[in-house]
């Protein structure tokens, strides 16, 4: 179900103007919401397909649970994921599935960035979702410096209206989708992020050697 919402600064005079100028968005900071994005409408969405790459009928499935504010997830996405992509996803050997798991490392941006990424997915496709996520993880520290503007820029870079995506972050328009993923992670015993499962088996860490060995082992068993 989708519910139309409007990100707006109602005419409340000095109070709103002061908070906008101060850029205070709570304990984790993150900068002001771009004033020229005010009035952008987003819908609240409670279900989306799973972001996934690779053939649906691949013999091995890799599930990864991540938190956009987790430094280890940035390390995984920036250093390990490209190797997974080139070695297994692009050749069509695995199905790679993304799950949100906001611990939350950051009480605000773990959720907001997840909603932003799902807004990108909702307006494009899985490939663009992963491209957006990569853009966030590449400069992750900007989430707590100027999060809304950062999200807007990365969305624009991926061909999606930045104000819409920043508003989705602000409104947490995909919170129910993200919460459902987190519940899945809890049900599967996710102990932290990034949590990597190969054919349902939780790996002890996210190092390339560990991940590739697990995938190779499963590929050998299934071929």
């Amino acid at each position: 179900m989708r519910t139309t919402r409007r990100s707006t600064l109602a005419a409340l005079g000095g109070t709103i103007a002061l908070s906008t100028t101060a850029g205070c968005l709570g304990g984790s900071g993150g900068g002001s919401f771009p004033s020229d994005c005010d009035g952008t409408e987003v819908e609240t969405v409670n279900s989306l397909p799973r972001p996934a790459l690779g053939p649906e009928d691949a013999s091995v499935t890799v599930d990864v649970f991540e938190d956009f504010a987790c430094g280890h997830c940035a390390t995984f996405t920036n250093d390990v994921y490209p190797q997974i992509e080139s070695t297994y996803i692009e050749p069509g050997e695995i199905r790679y599935r993304y799950f949100d798991y906001p611990i939350p490392v950051d009480e605000n941006w773990s959720w907001r960035a997840a909603s932003a990424a799902r807004a990108v997915q909702d307006r494009t496709d899985a490939e663009t979702f992963f491209s957006f996520a990569k853009g966030i993880y590449e400069q992750q520290s900007r989430l707590i410096e100027d999060g809304y503007q950062f999200i807007r820029e990365v969305a624009d870079d991926n061909g999606v209206d930045g104000c819409t995506v920043a508003t989705a972050a602000k409104e947490e328009a995909y919170r129910e989708v993200v919460e459902a993923d987190k519940q899945t992670g809890d049900d599967r015993g996710v102990p932290g992020t990034p949590a990597v499962f190969v054919d349902g088996e939780l790996l002890e860490n996210y190092a390339w050697d560990t991940v590739s060995a697990a995938i190779d082992g499963q590929l050998a068993d299934t071929n």
Binding site: D67, C70, G71, H72, C73, T75, Y101, I103, V105, G189, V190, P191, G192, T193, P194, A195, E204, N205, Y206, A207
Partner: peptide, 10 residues
């Protein structure tokens, strides 16, 4: 070995 950001409940 760095394992990740911990779920405090875990």
């Amino acid at each position: 070995t760095l394992a990740g950001c911990a779920n405090s409940a875990a």
